[in-house]
Simulated scan of single mutants.
Amino acid sequence: MEHQRRARLGNGSMLAWLVDPTTNIPADTRPILLGSLLSASGVVLVGALSGIFVAVAAACRTGSRQFWVFAAIEVVLVLLRLRAIRRSERHFRAGTLPTVDRSVLLTIGWCALQGITGFAIALTGDLVMIVIATAFILGLVAPICARNHAAPRLAVLLVMLCDLPLKIGLAFSGHPVLWVLIPLCFPLFASICVLLRNVAAVMAASFNAAERNRFLAGHDALTGLANRYGLDERIAAMAVRPLALLCLDLDRFKSINDRYGHGAGDAVLVAVATRLRTVAGDGALVVRLGGDEFLLAVPDLDPAQTEALGRDIAAAITDCHIPLDSGDHVAIGTSIGYACFPEDATSVTSLRTNADDALYAAKRAGGGVRRHRAAATLPDAA
């Protein structure tokens, strides 16, 4: 079902502990797991028809009116559950995440009804109905665990609600030996809990590996900054507002690699990345293009503000010596070129090209901060 792809908990939901996956998973994955807890119409109808059959059969065999009441409650519950499914589908079609609370609460109510029905059947002493009820409830255990594997606590609760009342009823049916069924319940519940926790651990490992691969696909492994992957698309998404693009690379970086080794060069790159993130702020996109080349996309800056930011970046990089593991401290310089949208470019492609041109002009001039239009006035500018 499409609506089961993703879901969320309602605001201030009391079900958070119950539906927790009990293991560490990426936050972006939780809506997927919650979506699996939403009811499916086919499953709901099959379960309801089975429950109605058991209740009606018990009413016909025993003549007890309570089983007709149970059948009527079953009908009400199935209508409410189908209504909840339609509501979730409407949310999905509208592009919003459905809440899982109503579906979970109705599922809990349905499982409790099966347990109460089983309890009442056990007290009748009707052997045929006891066999039917026992087979029905035992047949629910595997589907409940399978459908609610993403929430082990919920799955155990649902199994308990179905199974435990039946066995309590059997214990009170007049055969003392059947009291042994009650302590035997707890190894069953414990084994289900352990099994589902193991499933959750495997699932979490899979989700975490996928999240790690997704992160590495779009980020530089050394510095944690964004990389070239999808860069133009990300810049284009930011360019719906005024946007400043700053390109920079490091001066004297090669000499540090040659003198201290590539480990020292890596330490310098990590230190520069940290300083770039700090100066640029949370709203900026900071990218390592490769080697000692970096790019910053910062929204809502005019050229004067971008010039000031470029000078702040240059000061943060050049004014502080960077410590190395060897105990030495090294100084690094930087050249920065920038262009602003829409002042200096009419497209993302030209914006990147113009920022690059300004960077090369700054390097030819011996460093510093250059804007594209200022660079274009130089005789040797591109």
Rank of each mutant, 00 (worst) to 15 (best):
F341T: 07
A331E: 11
L351P: 09
R373L: 13
T334V: 10
T334G: 00
K363R: 13
A345N: 12
A358Y: 01
N354T: 09
A331L: 08
P342N: 11
I332G: 01
G368K: 02
T353M: 14
L351H: 13
V330I: 12
C340Y: 05
A361I: 00
E343A: 15
S335K: 06
G366W: 08
L359S: 07
A358H: 03
T334Y: 06
T334H: 04
L351S: 12
R352D: 02
R370M: 13
T349Q: 03
T334M: 03
R373W: 06
G337N: 06
K363P: 01
I332N: 02
T334E: 01
T346C: 08
Y338T: 04
R373D: 05
G333R: 05
L359G: 11
V330K: 02
L351C: 12
R352Q: 15
T349P: 00
V369L: 03
T353A: 14
G333C: 04
N354E: 14
R352E: 04
D356W: 07
G366D: 09
G333K: 07
S347K: 01
I332K: 01
G333H: 06
A374D: 14
A358Q: 05
D356F: 09
V330T: 03
R370I: 07
L351A: 12
Y360R: 07
T353P: 03
P342Y: 14
V330R: 06
G367E: 00
C340V: 11
E343G: 14
R373I: 13
T346G: 14
N354H: 15
F341V: 10
H372C: 09
T346S: 15
I336Y: 00
D356N: 11
G367C: 08
R373Q: 08
L359N: 04
D356E: 07
P342V: 07
A355R: 00
I336L: 05
A362N: 09
G368R: 02
D344C: 07
R371I: 00
C340W: 04
R364H: 12
R370D: 02
A355D: 04
A345Y: 12
V348T: 14
V348A: 13
T334Q: 03
A339G: 06
Y360P: 05
H372A: 12
E343P: 12
K363V: 01
R370N: 04
D357T: 13
G333L: 02
A358C: 03
Y360T: 05
G366P: 04
K363S: 00
G367L: 10
A355Q: 01
A374N: 14
D356C: 11
R364F: 05
G366N: 08
D356V: 08
T349R: 03
R364P: 07
T346P: 11
V348P: 01
A345V: 14
K363A: 00
L359M: 06
